[in-house]
Design a protein around this nucleic acid. Sequence first.
DNA 1: GTCTATAATCAGATAGAC
DNA 2: GTCTATCTGATTATAGAC
Lengths: 238, 238
Amino acid sequence: MRGPPVPGRAAQGRTLRRVTGTRPPAPEGERPAGGARERRARPAYDPSSLVEVAAQVFNERGYDATSMEDLSAAAGITKSSFYHHVRGKEALLRAALERALDGLFGILDEPAASTGTPLTRLRHIVRRQVEVLAAELPHVTLLLRLRGNTETERWALERRREFDAAITRLVRDAQTAGELRTGSDPAVDARLLSGLVNSLVEWYRPGRMPVDALASEVDRMAFEGLRAHVPAGEARPS
Amino acid sequence: MRGPPVPGRAAQGRTLRRVTGTRPPAPEGERPAGGARERRARPAYDPSSLVEVAAQVFNERGYDATSMEDLSAAAGITKSSFYHHVRGKEALLRAALERALDGLFGILDEPAASTGTPLTRLRHIVRRQVEVLAAELPHVTLLLRLRGNTETERWALERRREFDAAITRLVRDAQTAGELRTGSDPAVDARLLSGLVNSLVEWYRPGRMPVDALASEVDRMAFEGLRAHVPAGEARPS
DNA sequence: GTCTATAATCAGATAGAC
DNA sequence: GTCTATCTGATTATAGAC
């Protein structure tokens, strides 16, 4: 907990927020039978849903600031009931990170990721990266905010570096092929590109705008820039 | 602490890393007199240095995962001695965030921030933002990773939103003036631009490349894009 | 499957000797 | 100014009743 020792929890600066957001309904058979529970809209209890709930709370509060009490409250059950479903805090983290990494590495396995010129492939990967990021928003967000404190975090960071390395190779190839700007270090350009894409998790929320529109704007900015383009033949604004 | 209860601290997954990185030398008179201390390169004890050390450790481990023990160890003294210099964990956080915010808002007060066309002003601000980010790297990094758990964090987030709003207004003005691309929401473009700039804290380290070179690459990417530009008159690659 | 109660440990912060 | 020793409360995790 934070701040000086204060009697009541309400006196602390920390705000208890509840996870909102829609979630896929759990299989009916998995629901607890005696629906005597009176809490507000409570998430289902199947493992996959619990991971998603946990990822949401981790992102809102930060992994370290999140207590098992916070997680169980978000799931609508007590802490010890929560432990009945989950091995521990770090197991939840790992499951969420695996989902994010599976999504990202899945992109590299797609046929379009190895078809065409380097730039064509790169643009496909960027577009798909935006889509995976939107589809797995809480899990990817979690992945991008890791500090590397635990063994699980370091494992995920290592896999993330492998993904980034694939992007860097592709940027280098595209520059060599004359499809990307010259005069800059491809490793730097790859980091700028990844930074741009990854920064979406800080503000994009589903429903804010269609995912394919977002992907198009990111693609345009990354490769053509924000500046207005003058029609061919006209003079460039000084 | 993390993981199941284990006897020894060494058995935990957490790695104790020491703050490296160079620091401006403290005024000689501020150093403790009897240099009997035998630890490795230890930072000075003046308040400003302690804030910088704290910001570094906060960034490495995350604010919540950082204990006062971690901070005092990084400073080379015991926890209770550390408390002699500092009011508490949150006071350190606030001091670091103030430094970051002062740097950023200082940019908006510069004459060049309100001289010329919207695009000229925007480009100046972006360049200066990269420079401030590099000069105040640990403090700005901390600012960009806030979750809003405490009152201090929420205060800083609110000020950061004000800064972002200024950028958004400028992007809108530049688009209206025909200097930026059309067909996209200026609020989205502003977020993409800020996301690109802010993502630097995730990888840029002083000494990796000169700051002005970095600023130029960011400027070029943001406004012209990564794609190779064909000389005027030639056909655009399909 | 869920609960109350509690164990074991670690956090931020302080007291008081030197 | 620094230290050892300690307080208070929160944290992860478990025991065992229902």
